[in-house]
Design a protein around this nucleic acid. Structure first.
Lengths: 226, 226
DNA sequence: ATCACACGGATTGTCAACAATCCTTCAGTA
DNA sequence: TACTGAAGGATTGTTGACAATCCGTGTGAT
């Protein structure tokens, strides 16, 4: 009855995924002007689907398109990265609060399981920031959807996380403090499990605030150049 | 030298504007399934630009597109409207804080002028919610851009305000408390002018919180049915 | 030597036809 | 009568060619 179809995967989606990962992983260099035909040959696409995908990427803020002039991957400043974390602090705080009120017990259990695999990843892949970052991404992703707040989820997954992931790859560093972050994650889940929305919001805000301070420090020390 | 070109207006932009206002003003009924060819004939477009515009509208959350099945204007629940205001409360609070730190004196003067015209609008167009809503929109728009926070501006102008305007037209009501709202706006501008970011954030959050409570009350009273 | 202007090449925007997919309708059967 | 199944029509997805616009180069003048 409620079939939930695999949601036909079209060329536009294909193009979007290709370009998105290319941007996030840094295969497409920021600031570089790049033509549509070159993109087509490089990713084996035709211009129709490509153009629609470019439009979607533009509304997500990953690239800029000037009419008759071509596309450019966004080049981002250190300030803008900081601003991004300021926004995350607020929105993910709200997400955590609502997740505490609305997540099912099954979802919370799955969230805990995620943290366990994350822990083993940290131990095994020592220093491999990539996998750590993906685990972190997964954690925040689950809380966003768990908030059951349509628009909030859409904005977090559709706008902010792409950006954050892009920075992560470029700077080739996770938050740089994996063990501490994991502990903070566990505290947040505990707050959610005990249905304490206020505490969950507080902890999440502090968690992201700490991540921001960490980045600001690295920038001051010259470890991160953008 | 720094010419600031009128930024070539292409058919895609035309299509996007047409559809966006049609959705916001309610010419396109939510939930109604509508074909591409019909949209083309109705707005004098061809399918190429139309499809790109549809993609942009989809990422902005104004309509939903299922592959091979057509497009549908989003139908929105009362709960989702409330959620929207929760998000606004946080994000516009941050915008107000940063606007207080970063707006130029000229921008602040222009903001004050906006409020003056808004006041005359309220007196003249008594009860004409439409113009009141536009004035209110203008006010929040200026503060968003004044924050100088690229991503924040993009999310407010690109995601939330379209939604809010859509609801306003559909419910054919502004906040319903124009005089009080105007007073609150003036207080916010005063805080910005005295460069008190903390106060500006507080006042903005309270302003939107009040608007939300107002809407919740109306929904409870059955004045608003969505 | 520097600046302004025009021309050509290249690139993007637009269009109309073709192919792939889905939804509805209409039988047929339990 | 209600439900399953398939076929047809309609709609969307895709493609390639055409038209409009911009950028870089080269020439000329100041």
């Amino acid at each position: 009855m409620l079939e939930l179809v695999p949601q036909a995967y079209t060329r536009v989606d294909e193009a979007f995924d290709c370009l998105q990962t290319a941007i996030v992983k840094g295969d497409l260099i920021p600031g570089e002007k790049i033509g549509e035909v070159e993109l087509c040959s490089r990713f084996h696409l035709t211009r129709g689907p490509l153009r629609e995908a470019l439009g979607r990427l533009e509304s997500r803020g990953l690239l800029i398109r000037r009419p008759h002039a071509g596309v450019k991957v966004v080049s981002v400043s250190a300030d803008e990265l900081i601003e991004l974390y300021r926004i995350r602090e607020l929105m993910e705080g709200l997400a955590a609060r609502q997740a505490a009120e609305r997540m099912t017990d099954a979802e919370i259990a799955a969230l805990r399981a995620t943290l366990d695999t994350h822990e083993t990843m940290i131990e095994q892949a020592q220093g491999q920031a990539y996998y750590q970052a993906e685990g972190d991404y997964d954690f925040h992703h689950r809380i966003a959807t768990g908030s059951r707040n349509t628009k909030l989820t859409q904005m977090l997954l559709g706008d902010l996380y792409y950006m954050v992931r892009m920075y992560r790859y470029r700077l080739s560093t996770s938050s740089g403090r994996p063990h501490m972050a994991l502990g903070e994650h566990r505290n947040i889940v505990d707050a959610i499990a005990s249905r304490d929305g206020e505490l969950a919001e507080f902890l999440m805000k502090r968690h992201i605030h700490a991540a921001r301070k960490n980045i600001e420090q690295k920038i001051r020390d010259g470890e991160l150049t953008i």
